[in-house]
Simulated assay, not measured.
Amino acid sequence: MREILGRRRRLRFRRKARTARQEAAVTFAVGWDWPVLPGVGLAEPAGTAESPGRGGLWTRPGTGRAERPGPGGATRTGGDGPVCACPDPGCVVPGAHPFDPGLLAATTDERMIRWWWTRRPDAPVLLATGGRAPCAVSLPAPAGAHALRDLDAMGMRLGPVVATPTRWSILVAPYGLERLGELLYAKDSVPSSLRFHGEGGYLLLPPSTAGTGQVRWERAPLAGSARPWLPDVEAVVDALVAASTATPGGGSRLAY
């Protein structure tokens, strides 16, 4: 009986999480006018060689490693980490990128969004950055925490901040590539661990899950806000460059 009750609780939690992703996507798109689309997500848990899991994954006997049949019957090994649902066996951002639909399909249409997440309730929520939508600057999590402390100490007003176990992303007002190029050209150096999510880019939004773990708000948008306020990129980039340079592991190392 205890096992049955535990299974029911897990099923209720999973249904609640699935509903939360759809409702979050609708809020971003309809309430805030942010174009979104479903990410590729992670492959289903592996089954066994005799009983493959959903998505065609199975576990090689004696290894415990998830594998997927590849071209010509070859297998693709997931190793100890999560396996992306895309066809790329060497995917470096498992679950955290567009695939089908592609990035150009991002929309603010509520009917399309509900249709997507009704068919794929576990799909992560991706923001198509740039244009009228927010842009972002992301950096390794330790450097992100350092940067937020510095910005708070300066009295800088910040908008939403998205966090994963490995990287933090500060959402900023839309900017163009020419404007960003001029801003970075004026710097003595820019650590390669900094990433700029502008026109043609994308960013995972909460409450998604990807290969690096759960996506959450480190600084959540104000409850009930019509559309979150965003700082200009010029206001934050100096602190992000300084924090990335000063934080061990947050300088030139490109960590996903």
Rank of each mutant, 00 (worst) to 15 (best):
E3W: 09
I4K: 13
R7H: 09
R7Q: 15
R7D: 11
R8Q: 15
R8N: 07
R9P: 00
R15V: 01
K16E: 15
T19D: 14
A20F: 00
R21K: 15
Q22C: 14
A24F: 01
A25H: 09
T27M: 11
F28M: 07
F28L: 14
A29S: 09
W32A: 00
W32T: 02
D33L: 03
W34Q: 01
L37I: 10
E44M: 10
A46K: 03
G47V: 00
S51M: 12
S51G: 00
G55S: 09
G55H: 06
L57Q: 12
R60V: 12
G64L: 05
R65C: 08
P69M: 05
G72F: 10
G73R: 07
T75E: 14
T75Y: 12
T77C: 15
T77K: 01
G78D: 02
G78A: 10
G79L: 03
D80K: 13
C86W: 08
P87V: 11
C91L: 08
C91N: 08
V92H: 14
V92S: 15
P94S: 11
G95S: 12
G95L: 11
A96F: 04
A96T: 04
P98Q: 08
P101V: 01
P101K: 01
L103H: 01
L104D: 15
A105F: 03
T107N: 07
T107H: 07
E110W: 07
R114S: 06
W115L: 12
W116I: 03
R119E: 15
P121R: 06
D122C: 00
A123R: 03
L126T: 04
L126F: 04
L127C: 07
A128M: 03
T129W: 03
G130C: 11
G131S: 12
R132Q: 15
R132N: 13
C135W: 00
A136T: 06
V137H: 02
S138D: 15
P140T: 10
P142V: 07
A143C: 11
A143Q: 08
G144C: 10
A147Y: 10
A153R: 15
P160M: 05
A163V: 09
P165D: 04
W168F: 14
S169L: 02
P174T: 10
E178F: 02
G181T: 03
E182F: 01
E182I: 00
K187E: 15
S192P: 00
S193Q: 04
G200L: 08
G201H: 11
P206S: 10
S208W: 06
T209M: 02
G213K: 07
R216C: 00
W217N: 07
W217K: 07
E218F: 11
L222S: 14
S225T: 15
S225H: 10
S225I: 15
P228Q: 07
P228D: 04
W229F: 11
W229T: 13
L230M: 09
D232M: 11
D232C: 11
V236M: 04
V237L: 14
L240Q: 05
V241K: 04
A242D: 13
S244C: 14
A246W: 06
P248A: 04
P248R: 02
G249H: 08
G249V: 05
G251Y: 01
L254C: 12
L254A: 12
A255T: 14
